[in-house]
Amino acid sequence: MRQALDPSLYDVSLIDALIEARAKFGDKEILEDQDRHPLTYTGLIRAAFVLGRKIAQMTDKGERVAILLPSSMGVVATFFGLHAHGRVPVMLNFTAGEANLKAAIKAAGVKKVLTAKRFIDQAKLDELIVELKTVAEVVWLDDVRKTIGLADKLYGLAAGAAPKRFRVKTDPDAPGVVLFTSGSFGTPKGVVLSQRNLVANARQVAAHIDLRPEWVMFNPLPTFHCFGLTGGVILPLLQGMKAFEYPSPLHAKQITDLLPQVKASIL
């Protein structure tokens, strides 16, 4: 327990913490969503590096890039893809409404919003996207994925084998994410958490709870929420627990049906 609270354990960037988790727990299945096509650590690292490089080609190092996606394998790969290439994820609350989202985009200095047509169609957010396009460029990840060719796949293989050679080295005290308050009391306020903050939060939880690598963490909370991101994504991935990402906490029946199917240990 004393070792778990050693501050040196937090002295690591998020992408390096993910890479180190693979070395510690082995290349096991670590991420799944309702599409039921799980990824191993290596699969996740490859996906993050390939997608991240595509996004890096249209952004600048250190740029804050917004993500407008539900809890899914896609949002996790996008989040770590930005980190692999030295960009800062800005998690947008797609339930916050047009005015609050525009305020968040302005406050964070966001130029590009990453989202997916499938999600926007299912969530019926087409009108919201029309409005967001007036303040930022909307990048469809579905279209980005269609441009992935042989050279990208070869890059992914190399990055999966030796990720520390390909990732952009970042300081643990550099920004890890920008989250926003709900806007209940006026305009949403941006909260910048460092990579050290996020790694420390996850490892502090693990210091208090005896989490086992064979367990499955079922996360229906959105990643624009601190619990959904830290507890539902970063914590399980760094502790060797498979993370099952589900897009909405409101689907009570679907969630309770899924829990035994995915052998969930923690909800």
Rank of each mutant, 00 (worst) to 15 (best):
L150P: 01
P163N: 13
K112M: 01
A84V: 12
Q239G: 00
R36Y: 08
K117H: 07
G43H: 13
D126R: 12
V65I: 07
D33F: 14
E98H: 04
V178D: 11
A151E: 14
L14R: 08
I45F: 11
W215S: 11
L193P: 02
P260D: 05
W215D: 15
A200L: 01
E20S: 14
V192H: 04
L14H: 09
A107S: 14
K189N: 11
T42S: 15
G190W: 01
A56P: 02
M58E: 11
Y10A: 14
A207S: 10
I55N: 09
I129Q: 08
G26P: 08
T95W: 09
L92E: 04
G240C: 03
R118F: 11
H208T: 03
A104M: 05
K111R: 14
I30D: 11
F224T: 01
P247T: 00
D60M: 12
K242P: 02
R87W: 05
P260A: 06
L157E: 14
S13R: 08
G183L: 10
T187M: 11
R196D: 02
V177W: 02
A151G: 03
A151T: 07
V205G: 01
A47R: 13
N201E: 05
S265Q: 02
L193G: 03
V130K: 13
V233D: 04
Q261R: 12
E98G: 00
I129P: 08
T78E: 06
A107R: 05
R53M: 11
A21C: 12
V144D: 02
T223D: 04
P70M: 02
R118V: 12
I209T: 07
V192M: 14
F80K: 04
N93D: 15
E127K: 15
L150E: 15
R64L: 08
K54L: 09
